[in-house]
C-alpha cells in the first residue's frame, strides 16, 4: 500500500490548531509545575519541619507512584461524582502541572542540596534571614544546575500532554485521531503528529541550551 499524505495536508490547519492547544496546555502546566516544584522542593529541604516535609513528601510519593492517565481521569471523570465539574482544558493543565511538579520538586531539591553548605553559612553569618539567603544566594546558583534535568522534564511534559486528548481536549493528538477516523490513514497521520511533537521538543531543547549558555557566559557557574 502506498503512502498517501493528502489527509495530512488537507487537515493541516486542524493539526496546527491542535498543536497550538498542545503548546498552550503544556506551557501553562509547565508554569504550574515549576511553581509547585519550587515550593515542594524547598519544603523538603528541612525534615525537622515535620508537617511541611510530610505533606510535600506525600505529594511526591502519590503523584510519582500513580499513572498520569489515572490522575487525569480522576480529575475529569472522578470529581463529577462530587458535583465538581471542571472544564476539560482546566483538568488537563492542573493534571499535567501537578504531575510535573512532583518531578520538578526533586530537581529543585537536588540542585539546592548540591550547592556547597558554606554558601548558606556565609549568607547567614552576614545576618541574612533564611529566605533572603535562599532567594539571593542559593537559588540563583541552583538554577543553573537545574536546567539540564529541567530540560528532560519539559520534554517529558510535552510528550505526556498527548494523554489529555482522552479528556476531549482538542490537542494535536486529538485532531489527528479525528482525521484518521475519516481517512483511515493511521500511519501518515501519526507520523505527522510525531513530527509536531518532535519539533516542539526540539525547540525546547534549543531554547534551554541557549539559556544555559547565557547563564554560563554571565559567570553563574564555578
Amino acid at each position: 500500500m502506498a503512502l498517501d499524505f493528502s489527509p495530512v495536508f488537507s487537515g493541516c490547519y486542524k493539526l496546527l490548531q491542535g498543536a497550538s492547544v498542545t503548546v498552550e496546555i503544556t506551557a501553562l502546566a509547565l508554569v504550574l509545575g515549576c511553581l509547585m516544584g519550587l515550593a515542594v522542593g524547598v519544603g523538603r529541604l528541612k525534615p525537622e519541619r515535620r508537617v511541611v516535609y510530610a505533606l510535600c513528601s506525600g505529594y511526591v510519593a502519590v503523584i510519582r507512584g500513580t499513572p498520569l492517565l489515572v490522575q487525569l481521569f480522576l480529575l475529569f471523570f472522578g470529581l463529577p461524582q462530587f458535583n465538581i465539574m471542571l472544564p476539560a482544558f482546566f483538568c488537563g493543565v492542573i493534571g499535567l502541572g501537578i504531575y510535573s511538579g512532583a518531578y520538578v520538586s526533586e530537581i529543585v531539591r537536588g540542585a539546592i542540596q548540591s550547592i556547597d553548605r558554606g554558601q548558606m553559612e556565609a549568607a547567614r553569618s552576614l545576618g541574612m534571614p533564611y529566605g533572603t539567603a535562599m532567594r539571593t544566594i542559593i537559588l540563583p546558583q541552583a538554577l543553573v544546575r537545574m536546567i539540564p534535568p529541567l530540560g528532560n522534564e519539559f520534554i517529558a511534559l510535552i510528550k505526556n500532554s498527548a494523554l489529555v486528548s482522552l479528556l476531549t481536549i482538542h490537542d494535536v493528538m486529538h485532531e489527528g485521531q479525528k482525521i484518521i477516523s475519516v481517512s483511515y490513514r493511521s500511519l501518515e497521520v501519526y507520523l505527522a503528529i510525531a513530527l509536531v511533537y518532535f519539533i516542539l521538543t526540539g525547540a525546547t531543547t534549543l531554547a534551554l541550551r541557549r539559556i544555559e549558555q547565557h547563564l554560563r557566559a554571565g559567570g553563574m557557574v564555578q
Binding site: G118, S125, P129, Q222
Partner: peptide, 23 residues
C-alpha cells in the same frame, strides 16, 4: 531567628574555604 540575624550583623565570619558567593 530575627534577633539572631541582627546579632550576626555585628559578628563577622571568615571561613577556611572562603565561601564567596560564586554567582
Amino acid at each position: 531567628d530575627q534577633a539572631l540575624n541582627h546579632l550576626r550583623e555585628q559578628v563577622g565570619m571568615v571561613f577556611q574555604s572562603f565561601n564567596l558567593f560564586a554567582h
